[in-house]
Amino acid sequence: MTLIDLGLVGPAQSDDLFHFTGRNGGRPDDIPVEISTMTPEQRLDAILGTRVLRGFRPFGATQKCVCFSESPPEHLAHLIGARGFSPWGVVVSRAAVFALGGGGVAYVPDAVHTRFRASGLEHWAVRTGTDSVWLHEREWRLPVLRGEVRLGGVRAVLVGNPHWRPSLVETEDWVNAETGERSQGPDGNPHTRPVEDLPPLWQESEIWVWDATANAVVKHPPGTLR
């Protein structure tokens, strides 16, 4: 994946795009019940275990997209503290989303949004009005034709609890559960099974823990929260 230099960000911008796994308000109709009933922590757990972000149709659009919010630190504090966003999700860079075909959406009046829709581009615009006020989301969208995108890596994982850890996943290593001896693979012994560990995405990424008292994130280097 070739990353394009998008230039330096100013104080009102951020190179960090947040995909929050919880939202306040309604949800698009096409989200399956098994996903809509999950907690933000459970959705993040599924993302870390599968390395997959699933896309759904934003309100008023037919194209499935994965959505992100561009947030410098003070705006992130505003979203979580004042807007009720859940501090759970993954953080990627603007350049990474841009390289995959994503970009920032346009916030436009109804008449302009109608023109986007007529061109089949309504997923690139959010209409504004008294019943549609979403400028605070500073949204970026990544259209996903197959409904999902596989994550090679992320900048950080955002969590709201310093003691939370994702579910263990199977690795390529094997062990005899009775003796603790490592094995090259299945050997016919019923006690030989794959070694489980924290997901690679968790171990490879910075972990940003939301501190509600400080109204900011505490950043931990990759591999330090086990």
Rank of each mutant, 00 (worst) to 15 (best):
R54A: 07
R226S: 06
G26N: 05
I47K: 11
V195Y: 04
P194K: 13
A214V: 10
P11Y: 04
T192Q: 06
E41F: 14
Q13N: 12
Q63N: 05
I31A: 01
L6M: 11
E41D: 10
A95W: 06
S36R: 14
C65Y: 06
P28S: 05
A111R: 08
S132G: 08
C65A: 03
V144K: 15
S93V: 02
Q13H: 10
W88R: 14
D197Q: 02
W164Q: 08
E181T: 02
G120Q: 06
S119W: 01
G223A: 00
G101Y: 04
D187C: 07
S183H: 00
P87M: 02
L48W: 01
R193I: 04
H113V: 02
S14E: 04
S93F: 04
D211Y: 01
T179L: 01
E172I: 11
Y107R: 04
A96S: 15
L17H: 10
F59C: 04
R150D: 04
G22C: 12
G180S: 01
A46Y: 13
F56S: 11
I80N: 03
V149R: 14
V175I: 09
H220E: 03
I35F: 13
L3I: 00
D29Y: 07
D5E: 05
L168K: 15
T37M: 15
G89T: 02
A156N: 08
L44K: 00
C67Q: 03
D29W: 12
T21M: 11
V175L: 12
P72N: 10
H113D: 03
H113M: 05
Q63M: 14
M1L: 02
I4T: 14
D110T: 10
P186A: 09
T50F: 09
D173I: 06
E34D: 12
P143K: 08
W174C: 11
D197L: 02
C65L: 05
R43D: 14
G84H: 09
S69Q: 05
Q63H: 04
D197N: 05
D187E: 06
F98W: 09
L121W: 00
I4M: 07
F56L: 06
L168R: 15
A12W: 09
V52N: 11
P28V: 07
W174Q: 08
V97R: 11
N161A: 04
R43K: 11
P28M: 07
P199N: 08
K219G: 05
W210D: 09
G84E: 10
R150G: 03
A212E: 12
V90M: 13
V91G: 12
G25F: 03
R115N: 13
V90G: 13
A177T: 15
W174F: 13
E122H: 06
P73S: 04
L17Y: 02
V91E: 15
V52H: 12
